[in-house]
């Protein structure tokens, strides 16, 4: 998404048509990779869960968030942010219950002075401005993020975040 800001809008429509078969294939791969066996060539000693966890059974799929674009956009956020209640802060804060919250108020995370002083309340509108260009919105923020420039990508990510950070009843 980072370089996409310079890309032609037509591109998406056309590529999506052309890649539709790839979409299908990808879907098939996702649904079948649970059965996929790895060849027995143990060169690497460290095994991890991700090798055996079928993608179709990951947590976010269990919550049945069908917002595919939003989920994909979140790849750009996941290194820094957890979303679920009780999960740790990473280089960025856990975003559980972020909508409606005042900026820089989640406990246990050290925010920049700039964000503390910003007086922002996180809404769809402010989160959109933030994800588009955090340093442009709040100069001197310590969030190092290049920004999401495409509106439909912002919208999908906002919807995804709304769903995933929803306060548990």
């Amino acid at each position: 998404m980072i370089t996409l800001k310079t890309k032609n809008k037509k591109l998406n429509l056309k590529t999506s048509k052309i890649f539709y078969p790839l979409f299908l294939l990808t879907f098939l791969l996702i649904s079948s990779c649970g059965q996929k066996e790895k060849k027995e060539e143990p060169t690497f000693n460290i095994k991890t869960e991700s090798k055996t966890t079928p993608i179709a059974e990951t947590n976010s799929d269990k919550t049945q968030n069908t917002n595919v674009l939003g989920k994909r956009m979140f790849i750009a956020c996941a290194a820094c942010h957890n979303l679920k209640k009780g999960e740790a802060h990473k280089v960025g804060p856990n975003l559980y219950g972020i909508f409606g919250k005042k900026s820089a108020t989640t406990e246990g995370f050290e925010y920049s002075e700039a964000l503390k002083a910003s007086g922002i309340t996180w809404s769809e509108e402010t989160i959109r401005k933030w994800m588009q260009d955090p340093a442009g919105y709040v100069p001197q923020t310590k969030m190092a993020f290049v920004g999401i420039k495409k509106e439909e990508q912002q919208t999908a990510l906002i919807e995804y975040l709304k769903e995933e950070t929803k306060i548990e009843e």
């Binding site: 998404m1 996409l4 998406n12 979409f23 674009l69 994909r72 956009m73 790849i75 290194a79």
Partner: peptide, 16 residues
């Protein structure tokens, strides 16, 4: 390096 790998992967994933 990580940042660039993420960007390249997203170039593919988001244009699928």
């Amino acid at each position: 390096a990580f940042e660039s790998g993420e960007r390249a992967a997203l170039d593919i994933i988001l244009n699928a």
